[in-house]
Write a protein that binds this DNA or RNA. Structure first.
Length: 423
RNA sequence: GGAGAAGUGGCAGAGUGGUCGAUCGCGGCGGUCUUGAAAACCGUUGACCUCACGGUCCGGGGGUUCGAAUCCCUCCUUCUCCGCCA
């Protein structure tokens, strides 16, 4: 959620910058400012009525103490009239506040100046690429063929148990999952992130805090009986740990990481992109989250990008980094870098990580603040990134490292798996 | 699931209808003293809206009253005991 103060001070700049995200705020911004003005006017009126009521109530008390019952009863009548009109104003005030809030949450976060204009993924800017695209041998297969050939991931069995997009990992496949999770968590811990094991069901407040609610609720699985949501990413419970918290400056930065399964309904995505591990309803992911002072959050974003790069480098996967264009960015992000690995048999770049700075967009929603000395509390910046999402990493590892004799695993993961190859 | 108790400021804990936004303590911050520190002493110390005046907030919501942290209803949460259980 954008801060009202920003809208008040630079309404035109807000409109211009949102245009980079292809969001037309030309009507919404003035509407919000009008509601804001109304709110303050009504609140002033309401305040002064309450003030009169408070004064009257005190006078009534004094009169009773002095035994002047008749005068007191007189004032009571006056007070009753005041109460009626202040109630009306109060209703009006809540009404305005509600619609103000309703309109305000419609505004996406402002893109940082670095964000390129553009509408589609083609307009994303490739800022870095490294690693060699492997030349595969003649009989090379896509990962969904390899997984069934070696019996390590069973998609059909998942359909039997649950439905499409819920694969069953078996034997070395299951072991590889566990190995990657441990490896990623160890690396995050080395980098100073505190490991968290959060709930994977969250309530509405949490969903709202990170920005999934109210708009993207159709992308989350919902447990109706208890009104809980299955998390689409660990970002939701982990960032919400600090909801309604005022930190001391010395406590910044807060660095947390977590492994969780993630659940996404992926409503509306069909076709060949969903083949095999490419798009699942349940998948494993290690997430890194930082809460930072606004002054250097962009340096921290670079640091997180470097962390993810190091992981992919260690796994010897060819990858590239994209700076997302305005049209491809998420609602709440100010700047996002996507990581894609090249999966050689599919001959496709697959997104395996997304690292974003949300600036104060999330912290404003969840009242996540810090205090410098005895100053007023100030909104912190929140950042997060996948480090990493497993399925497409597994897909690329299988496809890129396949030989006629089997899949050869990269060195760094072997001490975690306990085996060197899958055959 | 059954029975009972409780939810007040960073923590601890008073307050049960009328200057209570809230006593006191601890912690925090500032100061005096000290070579420095500790101790001691003095002062200060919640959040939100508002340019300000002023207003709001004692788990959430609703109600009674001229007036509620204090009374009533309801929901939520926590604790204790019993039952069940990974």
């Amino acid at each position: 959620m954008l801060q009202l103060s920003v809208l008040r001070e630079n309404p035109n700049e807000v409109i211009e910058r949102l245009a980079v995200k292809n969001f037309d705020a030309a009507e919404l911004v003035p509407l919000i400012l009008k509601l804001d003005e109304d709110r303050r006017a009504v609140q002033n009126e309401h305040d002064s009525l309450l003030n009169q009521q408070n004064t009257l109530a005190k006078e009534v008390g004094d009169l009773y103490k002095k035994g002047m019952k008749a005068e007191a009863d007189d004032l009571k009548n006056k007070s009753a009239a005041l109460k009626l009109s202040s109630q009306t104003l109060n209703d009006k005030l809540s009404q305005i506040e509600e619609s103000l809030h309703q309109e305000l949450v419609k505004l996406p976060n402002l893109p940082s100046p670095k964000v390129p204009r553009g509408k589609t993924p083609e307009d994303n800017e490739v800022v870095h690429q490294e690693g060699n695209i492997p030349a595969l041998y003649d009989g090379a297969q896509a990962h969904w063929e390899l997984t069934s050939k070696y019996d390590i991931i069973d998609f059909e069995l998942g359909v039997k148990l649950t439905g499409a997009g819920f694969p069953v990992y078996k034997g070395k496949g299951a072991r590889l999952q566990r190995a990657l999770i441990n490896y990623f968590l160890d690396k995050a811990t080395e980098a100073g992130y505190k490991e968290i094991q959060p709930p994977i069901l969250v309530n509405r407040d949490s969903g709202y805090g990170t920005g999934q609610l109210p708009d993207k609720d159709s992308q989350m699985y919902h447990v109706g009986l208890d009104d809980y949501y299955l998390i689409p990413t660990a970002e939701v419970p982990v960032t919400n740990i600090l909801r309604d918290v005022i930190l001391k400056t010395e406590e910044l930065p807060v660095k947390m990481c977590a492994y969780t399964p993630c659940f996404r309904r992926e409503a509306g995505s069909y076709g060949k992109d969903v083949r095999g591990l490419n798009r699942l309803h349940q998948f494993d992911k290690v997430e890194i989250v930082q809460v930072h002072h606004p002054d250097n959050s962009y340096e921290v974003l670079d640091e997180m990008v470097a962390h993810v790069s190091a992981l992919l480098r260690a796994l010897q996967l060819p990858f590239r980094i994209l700076r997302l264009c305005g049209g491809d960015m998420s609602f709440g992000s100010a700047l996002t870098y996507d990581f894609e690995v090249y999966s050689a048999a599919q001959k496709k770049w697959l997104e395996v990580s997304s690292v974003s700075n949300f600036e104060t967009f999330q912290s404003n929603r969840m009242k996540l603040r810090f205090r410098q000395g005895t100053d007023k509390p100030q909104l912190a910046h929140t950042l997060n990134g996948s480090a990493l999402a497993l399925p497409r990493i597994v897909a690329a590892l299988l496809e890129n490292n396949q030989t006629a004799e089997g899949v050869i695993l990269p060195d760094v993961i072997r001490s975690y798996t306990g085996f060197d190859s899958i055959s």
